[in-house]
Design a protein around this nucleic acid. Sequence first.
DNA 1: TTGTACGCGTTATCAC
DNA 2: GTGATAACGCGTACAA
Lengths: 352, 352
Amino acid sequence: MDAGGDSMQVRGTRKRRKMQRVTMMDVAKLAQVSPSTVSLYLRKPGAVSPSAGQEIARAIGTLGYVPNLVAGGLAAASSKVVSIIVPSIRNAFFAETVSTLQSELAAEGLQVLLGHSEYGEEQEEALVRTALSWAPAAVVLTGLSHSAGTRKLLRASGVPVVEMWELGGEPIDMAVGFSHPQVGASAARHLLSKGRRALAFLGARMQEDHRAARRASGFEEAGRNGGAQSCEIINHPGAATVEAGAILLNRALERNPNLNGLAFSNDLLALGALFECQRQGIAIPDRIALIGFGDLDFSASCIPSLTTIRPSGDLIGKEVARLILNRIHDAAPEEAQRIIDTGHVLIERRST
Amino acid sequence: MDAGGDSMQVRGTRKRRKMQRVTMMDVAKLAQVSPSTVSLYLRKPGAVSPSAGQEIARAIGTLGYVPNLVAGGLAAASSKVVSIIVPSIRNAFFAETVSTLQSELAAEGLQVLLGHSEYGEEQEEALVRTALSWAPAAVVLTGLSHSAGTRKLLRASGVPVVEMWELGGEPIDMAVGFSHPQVGASAARHLLSKGRRALAFLGARMQEDHRAARRASGFEEAGRNGGAQSCEIINHPGAATVEAGAILLNRALERNPNLNGLAFSNDLLALGALFECQRQGIAIPDRIALIGFGDLDFSASCIPSLTTIRPSGDLIGKEVARLILNRIHDAAPEEAQRIIDTGHVLIERRST
DNA sequence: TTGTACGCGTTATCAC
DNA sequence: GTGATAACGCGTACAA
């Protein structure tokens, strides 16, 4: 027993050598069957005779056999990886989605290959290129804005593609998300319904974050159409942080001291504004009303609690997984559900 | 020529077929060289004649060739993936580390395979098992506590392993992180130095999060040794959220209304306590001093700003990447740097 | 139900 | 510097 226990003396071998030594062949030998039977058993345990199955299972156990997915992927021309590309995993939205997605996929034996585009289309294209070199079972992208090259690469590959976190355009293949202009409009209408007329949308990194920019547009349009006296958009070029929230608040009030209704592209910004108001003694919501986006962890607990819009990154992850799995087990042959709207929910709290 | 170009009529094929059609062979043909030369060029461009290199580069361009890493991994017996296993990507600490790590590795052509252990050792073992089936270039684990099976699997594989976010034990292979008991002790000493004597450590999920538990132990020991009148540990079994922070604060004050120095296992908890104090009119730091852990985004901006300890998830990511890359390019033959202490920094702010 | 034979696209070792 | 050639470990017709 315990074959393969190298006796610590053999340490000499210069090159690091992989000891993926136990192959399917070894299992087959020990179980007294052919490799293909083992392979079959691994993929469809039911399709093999119970007795053989027993033997194989035992052999796998005693040998500690771990299938080589690389070899499997090569032979099957499609590996058990799903490549997920998000702007940044530091962003709580995407962290949530990726987390859920990872769990759902892992349950089906799929691994997650992660990449960060940092909101850059060229970066994304490069990531897609290397992603495809893994012959992935699927590719998940964030948003609908991609370089022509990305789209072409993906289309040509024939790999299932899901674009998430945005709806409102023609997806490459499948899409799960919601309309950002509608989110912006919801925010505007809510502020208007509270009697606010001097509005502004404060966002971060909107020159790159197209989805935030679209929320801003939706906000502006709904604001103007809904009777707002003023309704401007202010962008902070840096990342969406609490600190940026304070900066944005000050900039906005400088430009228009009468502002009384503020929407933010992200709860972090709203929290920063909240703190800054507290610091300056600006009453919320009496003097100014705030509405965020994301329903992050702290939004329900801060003081005053933050009215916000929940996009449900969780649900998005679940639905993306569902689409992928459907496609893989090609349960849906030709025209399956390709676009899923996960909607958004406005959660009213004390800050408005 | 162009053998194998199915003429689009063949669409009937039921199974989704991968169109990874352009192979190295195609490139070789077009460039009038042998596949080996192409392979060589791809790996060491310098080792091939300039003229041939030109041709190959051109061919790759016109054909849009994308190397098949699966095949490469099989042939080389080691794929260009690094498997990273963290408790949860939702945790900002790990999100930061993974993000940095991803960037650093991507720059060297390494992909990141992500897994969540959810603080479970069996889960982790399962993840390690599948990770190994990819013949990864390296495996990155969180913490030093793993099942015996995990350790055995990893040791037997011969794959480089880095354990991160914790020091203070014998790593499987390499380790990058810091001592958690020391962090706890720093927090205790800081509170003591501010004249606080009735201390408590409030943590979440410490039955599973061993690192948090170790911070608690370090805190308790330093507290008692440093002359604290009382020094207890309170655990919230759920996740570390802002909401849990409020719950913990209340529970702590119930048990001992005289508490005047509180340390938290996570800034989110501290923020929750901050809000709860504000709600109840408890003065910070006059009545009670708070110190967190993590230096999260909001910690500098909240009111009062939060004294905290920064572990630098960023730096951890960078160092992990460095160790891995060193090992891969086996720049360091036998006894290289195996353990790196990234330390921790106490950042004093207004909450103490 | 089980086994045989071939191929997946690349790397690595040699000769040349 | 370059090019045959043999693995790499497994899927998958196809035959038995």
